[in-house]
Design a protein around this nucleic acid. Structure first.
Lengths: 111, 111
DNA sequence: TTTATTCATCGTAATATTGCAATAAAGTAT
DNA sequence: ATACTTTATTGCAATATTACGATGAATAAA
């Protein structure tokens, strides 16, 4: 059906997966890495850097904005994008919390 | 087109996004959280816990196995699943490396 | 051998994602 | 006002994902 049954899951589970979904495309990773490197730049630079068509980049930027990882401000005809520091750290902490829950089993597990 | 242009991106970008994709569904987060909690269990327990049909859970488990987060061993008619410790830590380190690249801008960025 | 039990796979319907050409919107410059 | 620049939006085609019923495979129990 292609439709996720979000009502079966906790808010945290839905939030974690929503963030993961925003990161689940190499173009969006590439955009974030570029923003990490240049700190802030306009859409056109990202289009040149990543190598996808401008509408496609615009779409990926919208997804990154939707989860708050990225923010953009209008600068004349251009739009300047950068990483949202608070959200960035919050998401890092959220994932670390998830991964840190792992404890090596005291006895050897079945597999 | 629904088909990702992986050739435009670096191996690391493709790997990071592939891992994120495996985590990009609340059912798979729920499965991992359950495995964190019970250390190891059979498919039937996961089906009961998560509340999706058995073939659906089987499909999600296959995706988690594909990125190596989870491993399963046959135990009679059942299959016992648990988290792959090495891969778990490797993936945690990979994401931390990604998130740690962020540096707050020295001057106020454009946005 | 027959009957359960447990799980993976197949097939399929509904929906989502990816990518781009065309176009719209909104500012800048001439 | 006209032309130009830059970006978002729309519409669409190709493909991927999600979910489940039906079925198959493989072991265990009777």
């Amino acid at each position: 059906m292609g439709v996720t049954k979000t009502d079966l899951f906790t808010p945290t589970q839905n939030e974690l997966s929503a963030i993961a979904k925003a990161l689940a495309h190499p173009a969006r990773i590439a955009i974030l890495e570029y923003l990490l490197e240049c700190q802030s730049c306009i859409t056109g630079s990202i289009v040149d850097k990543v190598g996808l068509a401008q509408p496609t980049i615009s779409q990926h930027l919208r997804e990154l904005k939707a989860v708050g990882l990225v923010q953009g401000t209008v600068e004349g005809t251009a739009v300047c994008y950068c990483i949202n520091p608070e959200k960035w750290r919050a998401i890092q902490a959220l994932w670390n919390g998830f991964f840190d829950h792992y404890q090596a089993p005291d006895t050897t597990a079945c597999c």
